[in-house]
């Protein structure tokens, strides 16, 4: 099957079972890099089931009752932290959240000491976000429990990529063969990296559209087409994922002004005309309206999936926690 074929099957199914015979043969979810399509598809399938649950009046599915989940966020976050907390609670875990921006853990104690301390409290799931690339992997090496990366530096944000994939799959019916544009501050974005790996693994055509100062070196080596003009990159696109422009990039060092950025790279109805009529517009949030995206595009009920992404986020995180604790639960007979 051609990678870019228009075959109606949802995912390019792996021809063989994974070597271990497990659908998700990993202890942690540290990134999308290294996951095979079978594992990704399994995560998405399970998450899809949780979407239905989350739309019921009673949203509790306490399959993980009695387990402990620690959310350790070394970087400020509201929506991701809350999403993980809701996901854990709906599965029946006891969730504890620590935002260490205002705690003594941040300074003085090394990360590995923190890991030892947390490990001694016997959590079953640790969700971690950190400002340094690779930090979550380092901590995971010292933890006995499952570790989920909720974003590390500029490296990866795997649950964001999974929720984006689930959104695309539900709206478009498939990921394979879709032309998907990722636009904005790719250089500083872990969301972009995780999405590139995931969408490539699932057979999508990935395009990056950004001004040169916001593209990392040799990014074309990651298996993407690189464009600098929105008009070129958006032509014929099925999906457009906009990235948030961090305020610290707006001060003239990476681009001259917000006005100029919006003029050339802001997503507007006008620029979207070259995309497919049913183009899906996505944004990981929080949005800068009038900077990377026009309000009328963001609020277009037919094309914008931005709120749906948030909804999918809870389901995807439930799926991750469910899958990563499955063996533990079967082992303890619960």
């Amino acid at each position: 099957m051609n990678k870019h074929s228009t075959d109606q099957s949802s995912y390019p199914r792996a021809d063989v079972d994974p070597p271990s015979g497990k659908l998700f043969p990993h202890k942690h979810l540290l990134g999308i890099w290294g996951l095979d399509p079978t594992a990704i598809k399994h995560l998405l399938d399970v998450a899809d089931g949780y979407v239905d649950l989350n739309r019921q009046p009673v949203k509790s599915a306490p399959t993980c009752a009695g387990l402990t989940q620690i959310n350790l966020f070394f970087e400020n976050s509201t929506r991701t932290l809350m999403s993980f907390e809701i996901a854990g609670k709906r599965l029946g875990l006891d969730t504890i959240s620590m935002a260490t921006g205002n705690s003594s853990i941040k300074k003085g104690e090394t990360m590995l000491d923190t890991a030892a301390t947390l490990n001694a409290m016997h959590p079953d799931v640790l969700v971690m976000r950190h400002g340094d690339s690779g930090a979550v992997k380092l901590l995971a090496e010292k933890m006995d429990c499952a570790v989920i990366n909720a974003g590390d530096g500029r490296s990866e944000h795997p649950t964001q990529a999974l929720l984006d994939a689930l959104t695309i799959h539900r709206r478009k019916g498939k990921i394979n063969g879709q032309t998907i544009v990722i636009s904005g501050d790719v250089a500083h974005s872990r969301v972009a990296r995780s999405n590139i790996y995931l969408l490539n693994a699932m057979g999508a055509r990935v395009r990056l559209v950004a001004l040169p100062t916001l593209l990392p070196a040799d990014v074309g080596e990651l298996g993407v087409e690189v464009f600098h003009h929105m008009e070129d990159g958006l032509a014929g696109a099925d999906v457009v994922m906009m990235l948030r422009l961090q305020s610290e990039r707006m001060n003239g060092a990476f681009l001259p002004s917000l006005r100029e950025y919006y003029h050339f790279w802001g997503l507007t109805r006008e620029k979207l005309k070259v995309a497919k009529d049913d183009v899906l517009v996505m944004h990981p949030g929080p949005m800068n309206r009038g900077v990377e995206i026009a309000s009328d595009v963001a609020d277009d009920l037919d094309r914008s999936a931005i709120e749906e992404q948030v909804e999918m986020g809870v389901a995807v995180r439930m799926a991750c926690i469910d899958i990563l604790t499955k063996e533990l639960r079967s082992g303890t007979g619960s």
Binding site: W33, S133, G134, R154, A217, D218, E221, L222
Partner: peptide
């Protein structure tokens, strides 16, 4: 070093 590896690992790099 600025290049594919630093881009993938998300490490600040110089050419």
């Amino acid at each position: 070093h600025e290049g594919e590896i630093a881009t993938r690992l998300g490490l600040a790099s110089a050419p």
